[in-house]
Design a protein around this nucleic acid. Structure first.
Lengths: 195, 195
DNA sequence: TGCATCTACCTAATAGCTTTAGGCAAATGA
DNA sequence: TCATTTGCCTAAAGCTATTAGGTAGATGCA
């Protein structure tokens, strides 16, 4: 009996590939076992359970996304940085739809704290350094950027923009441009706004 | 043998309630059957399958959300309309987290076309009439609003904003205000922008 | 009212996924 | 070379989905 050489890392990687091929929801312990031509029960020496597998795929995706973000941000600032970072999200979701979905998998608080999630927020703040925002507006802006990136990408993945003109790429560019403009002219609180 | 009086509507309603209680992912044909104290197979006279059940819950949620949106928009315009409509999304997601998730369930194209989804887009365009946008910018703006509303609400539901200051309500208000400002001063295309 | 039909819900069965318990053989290391 | 560790296996129980076919309650018509 030749051993398959299973490790948590290989299982996670295979799960991530499977997610991209058939969707994160369809990733099961059984399907991963099949991929290694191994009995299902064998995976339970490496994984706690199904939730554990999904959590690991989510962490992998978050880390990959953060790595790409860091690379994109290197040597860039201002609108250039904003655009590059935004494209990282959108491109990743298009190249790896299953992993992108995995990245939105709800993690347990402790796991989330130890994940690459924090790096994402740090990078957004780094981008915002190119704009003139101070707390608490910077935090509001981080949340806005996160919402737009995630919201757009997931609506697009759901096909929401695929059956109407203009094409999605154009909206994406214009939206990122408009965010740049908004960040450059972030309005003061409504009650005192003279915008 | 007393009959339970199952109908597609009651099953859908029960499924929606279940979704709010335990999460849309946990809504199963079995769980709904249990709720009516009926055998699982009995539901298959009313529902095609599990996917059918989920689709119906999604349609219910989309319709409820559209109804609330329409009510909120009545007699309002401009920033007032924008704020009220935005709050409809956020409040609905908070009151009915399972239904809100259901509303994002990917529908088959024909089902989607017949759903309340179109009403949502129409309402956004109605709001934008209060701003000075013409095509294709209006479409870009519809997509931006959809992205921000959905993105913010789903990140918030995932707990992304719950462990840091300032509190989520404040960010939400400021973000909606900033969108209002952005729509009032929508930048021309980048290449010719003098913003 | 009585009977035929319809249909709502049932039992039974198959199949897939999850998870645990316990076993054997390959790898490791003294 | 032998003991130990450990990787993968078989077996089994429990849950969900789905289909086929049966029975009794509800409905409609004479």
């Amino acid at each position: 009996m030749v051993r398959a050489g299973l490790t948590v890392e290989r299982l996670t990687q295979a799960g991530a590939e499977l997610a991209d091929e058939v969707g994160f929801e369809q990733v099961t312990v059984s399907a991963v076992a099949r991929r290694f031509d191994v009995k299902v029960a064998s995976l339970y020496s490496h994984l706690k359970n199904s939730h554990d597998l999904k959590t690991r795929i989510a962490q992998l995706a978050l880390a990959e996304l953060a790595d790409r973000g860091a690379t994109a941000l290197a040597g860039r600032a201002g609108k250039d940085a904003l655009t590059a970072f935004a494209d990282v999200y959108r491109d990743y979701a298009q190249e790896h739809p299953g992993r992108y979905t995995a990245a939105r998998f709800r993690l347990d608080p402790e796991v989330a704290a130890a994940s690459a999630g924090a790096r994402h927020a740090q990078m957004m703040r780094a981008i915002l350094r190119g704009y003139d925002l101070t707390e608490p507006d910077q935090t509001h802006a981080v949340r806005l950027l996160g919402s737009v990136f995630h919201g757009y990408v997931s609506l697009e993945a759901a096909g929401a923009f695929s059956h109407s003109a203009p094409d999605s790429q154009e909206s994406w560019s214009r939206i990122v441009e408009s965010l740049d403009a908004l960040l450059r002219h972030w309005p003061a609180s409504a009650s005192v706004s003279a915008y």
